[in-house]
Simulated scan of single mutants.
Amino acid sequence: MLAKKSHKARLSPYRKLFFQLGLILTLTLIYVALEWKTVDRNVSNLDQVSIQTEEFIEIPVTQRILEVKPPPPPPAPEKIEIVTNDEEIIETVLESTETDETEFIEVKEYEEIEEIIEEEELEKDIPFAIIEEAPVYPGCKGNKEELKQCLQDQINKHVLKNFKTELAQELGLTVGKKKVYVQFKIDKTGEIVNIRARGPHARLEKEAIRVVDMLPRMTPGRQRTKPVGVSYTLPITLQVLE
Rank of each mutant, 00 (worst) to 15 (best):
P71G: 06
E205V: 04
T165I: 10
A129R: 08
V180C: 11
E78W: 02
F184T: 04
D213M: 01
K206G: 13
P77V: 05
F56E: 13
T99N: 09
R203I: 05
T84W: 01
E205P: 03
D187C: 07
N45P: 02
L94R: 09
P71R: 03
I117G: 00
S50V: 15
L17Y: 10
E205D: 12
L34I: 11
A9Q: 08
Q48G: 05
R10E: 12
L27N: 04
T165S: 14
L23R: 01
A134Y: 02
E54G: 12
M218C: 06
W36V: 05
P220C: 03
G172F: 06
R222A: 08
R196K: 13
K144W: 00
G22R: 01
Y137S: 01
L11Q: 06
Q152T: 11
Q63R: 11
K141V: 13
I130K: 10
N194V: 02
V230T: 15
P60M: 02
P220E: 05
Q152E: 15
L25Y: 07
K8C: 03
A3F: 09
Q183M: 07
E112C: 01
N143V: 05
V61L: 14
L171G: 08
Q149G: 04
I65C: 02
T102G: 12
Q52P: 02
L94V: 13
K157P: 00
E78C: 01
D47K: 11
T237Q: 10
T225C: 00
F163I: 09
H158P: 06
I24E: 04
R196S: 15
Q152L: 12
L204G: 09
K141A: 10
E132A: 11
P71Q: 08
G221F: 03
Y14K: 04
V61D: 14
D125Y: 02
L241E: 14
I65L: 14
F56N: 11
E111F: 06
L167T: 10
L34F: 14
Q63F: 08
Y110H: 09
F128Q: 03
I236D: 07
T62L: 12
V211I: 15
P73V: 10
L25Q: 06
D125N: 14
E119M: 03
D153N: 12
L11S: 09
L215H: 05
I117T: 14
L34H: 04
K4I: 13
V32K: 03
T62D: 09
L29Y: 07
I130F: 07
L173T: 06
V83D: 04
E54K: 08
G221H: 02
N162G: 02
T28E: 06
Q239S: 11
K179Q: 13
G22L: 14
G221V: 04
T28G: 15
V32W: 09
Q48E: 15
I126M: 07
A168H: 00
